[in-house]
Nucleic acid binder design. Structure first.
Lengths: 132, 132
DNA sequence: CTCCTAAATGCGAATGATTATCATTTACAT
DNA sequence: ATGTAAATGATAATCATTCGCATTTAGGAG
């Protein structure tokens, strides 16, 4: 078995791309990144595989920012901060949703995931504003 | 000053529609509801006013479910459950994000809002599945 | 080794939600 | 009455995402 299984070259590249960044990218961003190594990759392939990874729980989605969906290759529970000005998504590793909270969701159905998100203006954008 | 200010008839109707439902509707849903009373309302007007309300903090958005944005006329902080099967959005009034959590977000920028969301399969969808 | 099949992919068209444009209407102040 | 700025309706445009289909690929059966 080769390290580069040709069969899943693109698929693996997409997952690896997500795993090795913390920008919480869009499909388009992943596509642009991969074009360097895979000049013939198709945007449809990126979308297809992102959907597949999501279904299988290999990645998660952060939500839709400025009209485009953003993905996250880090499936460990963590909290996000979304800057509504520049659209950047940051991890808040300091914070965690208390387990008791999750446990207290009952009777509503089968809970599969939990996501805590803060929105606001990131420091970078605040500085830009002041300078301007 | 009349109770029915003609000037903002549609705008008021849109806001009232959001305030008086708990379905966390899409723009389209609001449009369909209002057609009864306002046969000449335009979908563009609904989108325009929803965007305006959102900017002003008079409503919030729950996020994008199955590709369409969902709104909430209840601006008091509360938690949501989203059924990924049928797309319904439910309020979890029993749960609240502890203030300490919010406070511990610091140094990242200016925090404007906080949203905790659970996703899964609602009871109704679970039952349907079993029956089938 | 060759043939077969299922999965993966590329390409481009189709879809669907949202936004932009522009002419018209409305309310209110002058 | 009239001017002005905002609100609206209708529809075109946009943009992210998905779909359809032909092609390629890998790996197994013979």
């Amino acid at each position: 078995m080769e390290a580069t299984a040709k069969r899943f070259r693109k698929r693996n590249a997409i997952l690896h791309c997500l795993r090795s960044t913390d920008v919480h990218p869009s499909a388009e961003w992943v596509y642009e990144q991969l074009k360097a190594e895979h000049s013939d990759i198709s945007l449809a392939t990126v979308y297809r595989n992102l959907a597949r990874f999501k279904e299988r729980g290999e990645i998660i989605t952060v939500g839709t920012v400025h009209g485009t969906e953003r993905f996250d290759g880090n499936t460990k529970p963590h909290v996000h901060f979304i800057c509504t000005a520049c659209g950047s998504v940051l991890d808040l590793h300091q914070i965690a949703v208390p387990e008791e909270l999750t446990k207290s969701v009952s009777g509503i159905g089968q809970v599969n995931s939990c996501h805590l998100t803060f929105t606001g203006i990131c420091n970078e954008c605040i500085n830009k504003e002041e300078t301007a």
